[in-house]
Amino acid sequence: MTDLAPISIKTKTETPRSVAASTILGVSVKAAVAIALPVVGLLFWEIAVAAGGFSGRLMPPPSRVAMTLWRLWKSGDLLNHISITTFRVLLGFIIGAAPATITGAITGYFGLARRLVDPSLQALRSIPSIAWVPLFILWFGIFEASKVALIAVGVFFPVYLGVSGAILSVDRKIVEVGRIFRLSGFALVSRVMLPAVFPAYVTALRSGLGLGWMFVVAAEFMGASEGLGYLLVDGQQLGKPDQIMAAIITFAVVGKVTDSVLLGATAPFLTWQDSYGREG
């Protein structure tokens, strides 16, 4: 009987350098995929204007818009307008999202509060944003308070609806399991209800932030002398389509950045999720 020599199995171990390189490569690939569609669209836009498909006067090519953005950036005006508009949106977002979260939680958890408050809020939600402008100017004046109030109104309703709807849609069996383990009151809310509604809450916050960026345009139409909305009005009044397009593109970029920041800030609270598409 012959002795069998032990077989050694070598496993491939990843060094910190290889892990960092693969992470950087993965991030680079995702970034390239994310900007592929906008880049193709901008190239098509540039070629279409150069070929005479669109009027360069009314529909300036991306190259001219980029020159306008560079000129505004170099003078410092663009950064000033971005910072002012972003401050208004974030302040309105906080003022609108905080009471919306509390109100949505109360109406979602307590049936009496829902029957008492929800119909009135749903009716107010149907009012167009522009209809609030004369009232807010009358109440708060034409300066910052009225602008922030209008943004807060735009943020309030999607966050409220998301929180209330998420609580109402929590699976009853999950709550019953919590009660079987004798969880009640704060423990039931913190350990069962809150994790169940948090993914929907993040989506509601993102929707509220997006509407905040939409409402800031209407807010800055109210006699603003600074901000990206002012750039739009100034470009329209002075016949500068390149400035209008530059403001619109800036809105898109800054809005996407703030949405990504919000998503990144809430991601650590959702690491427990094993949902479809998480790998993507």
Rank of each mutant, 00 (worst) to 15 (best):
G96V: 07
A113M: 09
L90M: 13
V175K: 12
L135E: 06
K173L: 09
K12M: 11
G154N: 04
S55M: 09
A187P: 04
L79E: 00
G41P: 09
I95W: 01
K240W: 03
I142P: 15
P99L: 01
M214E: 07
A51L: 12
E226R: 10
T271G: 12
Y276D: 08
A131V: 15
K30L: 12
L228P: 03
S275P: 01
F215M: 10
V33L: 15
A113T: 02
L135N: 12
L183Q: 14
F44K: 14
P16L: 04
L194W: 05
D234W: 05
E176W: 04
F110S: 06
L238P: 02
A252D: 00
M222V: 14
R125L: 11
I130N: 09
G52H: 06
A166F: 01
G141C: 14
D274M: 10
V163G: 11
A187L: 08
F54H: 10
T23D: 03
S260M: 12
F198W: 14
L91A: 10
D259A: 11
I9F: 08
W139Q: 14
A224G: 06
W272T: 14
K30F: 11
L43S: 13
R57M: 13
T15F: 02
L209R: 10
A113V: 01
F87H: 13
G108W: 01
V254Q: 01
A113E: 00
A34P: 10
F186S: 11
L168K: 15
P119S: 08
I249A: 10
V254R: 01
T2V: 12
P241K: 00
V257E: 00
T107A: 07
E279K: 13
K240A: 02
E14P: 00
H81V: 05
M1S: 15
F140K: 15
A123C: 05
A66E: 04
L121I: 13
G76I: 09
V155P: 03
A32I: 09
F110I: 07
K256T: 07
T258G: 00
W45P: 11
S55Q: 05
S22Q: 05
Y109P: 04
P6R: 15
T85P: 05
A48I: 14
P119H: 09
P16N: 08
A247M: 00
L211A: 06
V254A: 01
S275W: 13
L263N: 11
V19L: 08
F44N: 11
D242M: 00
A204P: 02
D242K: 00
K74G: 13
T85L: 06
G141H: 12
L4C: 11
G280Q: 13
V202Q: 15
A131I: 07
I137P: 01
P134L: 08
V261W: 02
L211Y: 10
V163P: 01
